[in-house]
Amino acid sequence: MSTAAAPDEGRRERLVKLGSAAVFLAIVAVAILVVVSESQTDGGNTDLEGVAQVKADLRGIPQRGLVLGDPDAAVTLVEYGDLQCPACKVYAEEIVPEVIGSKVRSGKAKLEFRNYTIIGEESVPAGAAAIAAGEQGRGWDYVELFYRNQGFEGSDYVTDSFLTSIAKGAGVPDIERWNRDRKSRRVLAEVSRTTAEAKSLGLDGTPSFAVEGPGTEGLEPLPFPESARELEEAIDEAG
């Protein structure tokens, strides 16, 4: 019996040795791959506020450009905003998420952000950065995350580094392309176009809202809303 057991014992010992070596090598290899991968992402978004919250608010809602929600939704609610505007930040944090939850997620309306740059020169590159993020499907992540990390007005916080950290936090897939796009004449012209449009509509501040749907005659500016409920009612009436 002992002669029959010996080969089995030897095989088991060999299996344990080789198995342990294989597991060790695999752990080391995976650790190296993960460390290299993590080191190249440079943690650009680690200091940002609200990354998880924004992601949770927008998860599962389609985005195209700066339009959030079902592209075929009958009603379009347009926010004319300036990313540097403190009042817009308050709206982004307290009112817009409610409307997204009640009307956009359900497909009743889509929500479009249009730049209306009135605060200062830096509002233009900020708005262009949001449009460029939108071209990679992260426009609303960019807008929402920018508002949540907005600096003090006039404090010159809108630097390339700040804009890039927002892009990384928003999950913009191709930062190089985003950098090219946000500086392009085409995108900068779009910021000017929507700003001119807001002026032509007679909007005199940010955020301003307008709604368009089967129940409206084109894009109709709304009175300054005090609550999410007013925006929701405007959507219902436009539908």
């Binding site: 080789l18 070596a21 294989a22 290899a29 993960v34």
Partner: peptide, 20 residues
């Protein structure tokens, strides 16, 4: 045994990296 162990180590590495 070299091939047996190599195959297992490579597959375990590939699996771990796929999980990541």
């Amino acid at each position: 045994d070299g091939a047996r162990m190599g195959g297992f180590a490579l597959a375990l590495t590939g699996f771990g990296f796929s999980v990541y």
